[in-house]
Deep mutational scan, measured.
Amino acid sequence: GLEHMADEEKLPPGWEKRMERSSGRVYYFNHITNASQWERPSG
């Protein structure tokens, strides 16, 4: 619901949600550090 939507907005600075086109899996990418990970970043 709306709570989940708001929660997605609160990623740490630099992080954004991305989708891997080949598999459709969602991952997280940090455009500041060029880091990427499957787990939702905390902090």
Results as ranks from 00 to 15, higher is better:
14 G>Q: 04
1 G>A: 13
38 W>Q: 04
9 E>Q: 09
37 Q>D: 01
26 V>L: 07
21 R>A: 15
29 F>G: 00
23 S>W: 03
26 V>K: 03
21 R>V: 15
4 H>K: 10
14 G>S: 03
28 Y>N: 00
21 R>F: 15
35 A>N: 08
14 G>Y: 07
23 S>Q: 04
3 E>K: 09
2 L>V: 11
23 S>G: 05
20 E>G: 05
40 R>W: 07
12 P>K: 01
14 G>N: 07
36 S>P: 02
13 P>S: 07
30 N>L: 02
27 Y>T: 01
24 G>T: 03
35 A>P: 01
2 L>P: 12
16 E>F: 05
3 E>R: 08
21 R>E: 15
1 G>C: 15
32 I>T: 08
27 Y>F: 07
10 K>G: 13
18 R>F: 06
20 E>Y: 09
31 H>E: 06
26 V>S: 06
6 A>T: 12
9 E>R: 07
4 H>Y: 10
13 P>R: 08
16 E>T: 08
2 L>C: 15
30 N>H: 04
38 W>M: 06
6 A>P: 13
40 R>A: 07
4 H>T: 13
14 G>H: 08
6 A>L: 13
43 G>Q: 11
24 G>E: 04
14 G>V: 02
9 E>N: 08
43 G>E: 13
39 E>Y: 07
12 P>D: 02
33 T>D: 04
10 K>D: 14
18 R>A: 04
38 W>F: 09
33 T>K: 04
12 P>T: 02
21 R>P: 15
1 G>T: 11
28 Y>M: 00
24 G>P: 01
11 L>R: 01
20 E>P: 02
35 A>M: 14
29 F>N: 01
2 L>R: 10
2 L>S: 12
8 E>T: 10
6 A>M: 10
21 R>S: 15
2 L>Y: 14
31 H>V: 15
39 E>K: 06
12 P>F: 02
38 W>R: 05
6 A>W: 11
10 K>V: 12
32 I>S: 06
38 W>N: 05
10 K>I: 11
6 A>Y: 12
2 L>H: 13
8 E>W: 03
20 E>C: 15
18 R>E: 01
3 E>T: 11
7 D>E: 11
25 R>K: 08
5 M>R: 09
17 K>T: 07
16 E>I: 08
8 E>P: 09
38 W>Y: 13
34 N>H: 12
10 K>M: 12
3 E>A: 13
17 K>W: 05
18 R>Y: 06
12 P>H: 02
12 P>S: 03
24 G>F: 03
27 Y>M: 03
15 W>E: 00
7 D>Q: 10
16 E>Q: 07
9 E>I: 08
29 F>M: 02
8 E>H: 09
19 M>K: 09
16 E>G: 04
38 W>S: 05
35 A>Y: 08
31 H>D: 04
24 G>A: 04
32 I>W: 08
15 W>S: 00
4 H>W: 11
10 K>C: 15
10 K>A: 13
34 N>I: 03
1 G>E: 11
20 E>M: 11
37 Q>S: 06
30 N>D: 03
32 I>F: 11
1 G>K: 11
11 L>A: 01
22 S>N: 14
43 G>D: 11
11 L>V: 06
13 P>N: 08
9 E>D: 12
36 S>M: 15
3 E>C: 15
39 E>P: 04
17 K>S: 06
27 Y>I: 03
2 L>N: 11
33 T>Q: 03
27 Y>G: 00
7 D>G: 10
8 E>F: 04
39 E>F: 07
31 H>F: 14
22 S>P: 09
37 Q>L: 04
9 E>V: 07
12 P>M: 03
36 S>L: 11
35 A>D: 07
3 E>G: 12
37 Q>G: 02
8 E>I: 10
14 G>R: 01
26 V>M: 09
32 I>K: 08
8 E>S: 10
5 M>Q: 12
13 P>A: 10
22 S>D: 14
40 R>M: 07
33 T>Y: 06
24 G>L: 05
24 G>H: 06
34 N>K: 14
43 G>S: 12
25 R>I: 05
41 P>T: 01
42 S>Y: 10
6 A>K: 10
11 L>H: 01
20 E>V: 10
20 E>I: 13
19 M>D: 03
26 V>T: 08
36 S>G: 05
31 H>M: 10
30 N>W: 01
17 K>E: 08
16 E>L: 06
36 S>F: 13
23 S>D: 06
43 G>M: 14
32 I>V: 09
34 N>W: 07
36 S>W: 15
16 E>H: 07
11 L>S: 01
11 L>M: 05
6 A>H: 13
23 S>M: 04
14 G>I: 02
41 P>R: 00
23 S>Y: 04
19 M>I: 15
32 I>G: 05
30 N>M: 02
4 H>R: 09
27 Y>V: 02
25 R>A: 05
43 G>H: 12
20 E>R: 05
33 T>V: 04
29 F>D: 00
7 D>I: 10
2 L>M: 11
2 L>W: 15
13 P>K: 07
19 M>F: 15
37 Q>R: 05
5 M>V: 12
13 P>E: 09
5 M>G: 10
35 A>V: 15
41 P>I: 02
37 Q>V: 05
42 S>I: 13
40 R>E: 04
23 S>I: 03
27 Y>E: 02
33 T>N: 06
38 W>P: 04
28 Y>R: 00
39 E>W: 08
20 E>D: 15
14 G>T: 02
37 Q>F: 03
29 F>T: 02
26 V>H: 07
40 R>L: 07
28 Y>K: 00
3 E>N: 12
4 H>E: 13
19 M>L: 14
39 E>I: 06
10 K>F: 10
10 K>H: 11
7 D>K: 08
12 P>Q: 02
1 G>V: 12
10 K>E: 14
30 N>E: 01
31 H>S: 12
28 Y>A: 00
31 H>P: 07
29 F>R: 03
25 R>M: 05
41 P>D: 01
25 R>H: 04
2 L>A: 12
41 P>S: 01
